[in-house]
Amino acid sequence: MLSVRGLRRAGLGPASFDLADGECVAVRGPSGAGKTLLLRALADLDPNQGEVRLDGVLREAVPAPRWRRLMAYVPAEAGWWAERVGEHFADFAAAEALIAALGLPPACRDWPIARLSTGERQRLALARALVLAPRVLLLDEPTSRLDPDAASAVERLLGERLAAGAGALWVSHDRAQAQRVSRRALRVEGGTVAEAEP
């Protein structure tokens, strides 16, 4: 589904790998090694070079906003721009099932962003991206600030998406989690990207 050839940017690359339908690849490596740079380059959020195809289509052939709805980047610390949760969703009703699956009540629509815990923010940022039904998920430590129950809920929900055919690159520092959610791994170290033991 996703094919990456010679992806390069400042501080990273060249990287080449493939991702199949329904496949989750763990992304490992020390802090500052370039894991986030890799995800940002795939979402085309920073200048980069290389051939990236999704379902055979070159990304240059797709308008960037459409590309980013297909390749959903969920950063470790997402940005918020409005006062309340609901304003960050184009259609909150469509996201209610997702939000419930992540263990948050529908009433969170009216919660002020400033009073959310970091764990609530992390789950809502994920819901915000999942509601777009992306082909590929670019997840930067999606459970780093969650308690074990919430982390399991996230793993379950993402598992459903993978079963439905989405692909994922999952940055995780938790070896056990990486082995639970993926059968392949990429190791990012000093700006190089290579296949690694799962």
């Binding site: 979402a43 906003p65 950063p75 997402a78 918020w80 721009w81």
Partner: peptide
């Protein structure tokens, strides 16, 4: 200052 918010919107497919 609003870099995270602007990029958050871009990542969700805003122009």
């Amino acid at each position: 200052r609003e870099r995270a918010a602007v990029e958050g919107r871009l990542a969700l497919g805003f122009t």
